[in-house]
Structure formats: C-alpha cells, structure tokens
C-alpha cells in the first residue's frame, strides 16, 4: 500500500491518516499485519460510514474495464498477491480530508476501483489546509 510508505510525510504535515474498511475487526487486524500497516482502521461492515459519506458501488462493466485490469496487473507485478477479499468487492473507495473545524476540504469519490488519488495529490493537500490556516 503506497500510503503506508508516505506515513512519515503525512505525520510531518500534521495529518492523521485513518483507514476505513468493510470487514470485521479480526480481518482488519490481519490486513494490518499482512501489509505491515500502522494506520488505525475503522471497521464498517454495515457500510454506515460509506453511506453517509456518499460512496457508492461500482457496476460490473466498470469492474472489468481495461483501466481496472491494468491496475490489477501492475499490482501483481509489484508482488501483491490478492487474497480472498472480505466485504463488498463492488464497493467504491474514496478519500476525504477533514479539517479541525470539521469541514471537508478535499473529497475524492472513485468512479471505478482503479480511480484513486496519487500519493502526490494527497501530499499536496497540506497546501489546502495551510491556505485556510494563514488566510491566503
């Protein structure tokens, strides 16, 4: 998981990174161990948070699109061996930056499973928060 490799940079930015997943706490802990993750994980097997943050499900045609298949092949080439997923494989991911006033400063709603913001995009979010802090 690319996010994990940038943990120190997010910490330097003063951000807290929290993951949200659909599985049970046991599965989440196994997932953390599998990828040596140190981010906290919220378990949301009933999709309560996914719903209130407006994250929908993919269609079958988007699940098997060339972009998604290419991303899967790239993951395999990096040595990521897929395991049996727990949860809803059709669920679309997303990323939100919430400031200390409780306002969403950035939102990314993935349109298909391959549509994720790059690490560079996420690291650039420090400028969004800084703009607000100093009124630029």
């Amino acid at each position: 998981m690319q996010l994990h490799h940038s943990k120190a940079q997010f910490e330097d930015m003063g951000f807290q990174v929290v993951l949200v997943g659909l599985g049970s706490p046991d599965r989440a802990e196994a997932f953390k161990k599998q990828f040596s993750l140190s981010f906290p994980i919220i378990c949301d097997p009933e999709k309560k948070l996914y719903r209130i943050y407006g994250l929908g499900r993919s269609s079958f045609s988007r699940m098997v699109s060339p972009a998604v298949l290419l991303k899967g092949l790239k993951a395999l080439s990096r040595g990521h061996t897929p395991s049996v997923p727990q949860g809803d494989v059709m669920q679309l991911p997303g990323v939100f930056l919430i400031d200390t006033a409780g306002k969403i400063r950035y939102a990314h709603y993935s349109k298909d499973p391959s549509d994720n913001p790059t690490i560079e995009t996420l690291l650039a979010l420090k400028d969004i928060v800084r703009k607000k802090k100093y009124g630029h």
Binding site: F15, Q16, V18, L19, L49, G87, F96, I98, G102
Partner: peptide
Amino acid sequence: LWEKCPLLLVFLRHFG
C-alpha cells in the same frame, strides 16, 4: 479524530 489535527479518511474497497 479531527478535533486536534486534520484527518485524512481513506475508505478502502475491501480488506485483501
């Protein structure tokens, strides 16, 4: 979680 510092909330597709 966002009270003291900005929160980057990352929703995953699934575990695995």
